[in-house]
């Protein structure tokens, strides 16, 4: 299943059709190199979220092949999908946190599924929560935090198990400009440490002065 390739993510002629009329992606081919930070942009309904979902196997392609960190997703069995998801951190616009659980519990989840010892979990959670500036709120329930803080918890959860790839689906969509800048700084930091980032957004301000590669989707087709 593993193979040697410089691209950490590679899509070849990938199409995704939900219904006969609804073609979400049409023959998309894309390579993302290890350590790269790319922006995936396009209007609502252009296929950004679908593309990300294909990358962490929440959806399966109708056609084409996808390789993520050496794994051929089209041949993954259901029991192998958790292994892929441990290699890919995902951040959403709506945070997807367990509201009634503490910050610690939310972040620890990514490590508990790996079966790490409690002491290791505690050490790594504290480290990462300190990195995102929330160490003082470790025992606070997620629901009690502001939107920006919740997104930082979601980022901490996504990266605490040190995945080589981060998929961010409109992570700043619910945040004001200051909180957005905080999230972008965290993303830059992660990328500087070698994490590959695919950042989906329709907010062009986020990449208008950047040197990062910008990939544009329109009506399920890659246009740039």
């Amino acid at each position: 299943m593993k193979y040697i390739d410089s691209a950490i993510v590679k899509l070849t002629d990938v199409s995704k059709r939900y219904t006969v009329e609804n073609l979400a992606l049409h023959r998309v081919s894309l390579e993302v190199q290890k350590g790269e930070f790319i922006f995936l942009t396009g209007p609502s309904g252009s296929g950004k979220s679908t593309l990300l979902k294909l990358l962490f196997c929440a959806e399966r392609p109708t056609e084409g092949t996808i390789r993520v960190d050496g794994m051929d997703i089209s041949t993954l069995t259901p029991s192998q999908i958790p292994m892929l998801r441990r290699r890919v951190g995902v951040i959403f616009q709506d945070f997807k946190l367990l509201g009634r659980h503490t910050v610690f519990d939310n972040v620890a989840l990514s490590l508990e599924v790996l079966g790490l010892k409690t002491s290791q979990v505690e050490k790594r959670v504290r480290e990462i929560v300190a990195n995102v500036g929330l160490i003082g709120k470790l025992e606070q329930k997620a629901i009690e935090l502001s939107g920006g803080e919740q997104q930082r918890v979601a980022i901490a959860r996504a990266v605490v198990n040190r995945p080589p790839i981060i998929l961010a689906d409109e992570p700043t969509g619910n945040l004001d400009r200051d909180r957005t800048n905080e999230v972008m700084e965290l993303m830059e930091e992660l990328n500087a440490r070698g994490t590959t980032i695919i950042f989906a957004t329709h907010d062009e301000k986020l990449f208008e002065n950047t040197h990062r590669r910008v990939v544009r989707l329109e009506n399920g087709r890659l246009v740039k």
Partner: peptide, 15 residues
């Protein structure tokens, strides 16, 4: 929601 999050972070069915 909780189950969805667990799947997202790579939990196995047994977990």
């Amino acid at each position: 929601d909780e189950l969805e999050i667990l799947r997202l972070v790579g939990a196995t069915n047994m977990f």
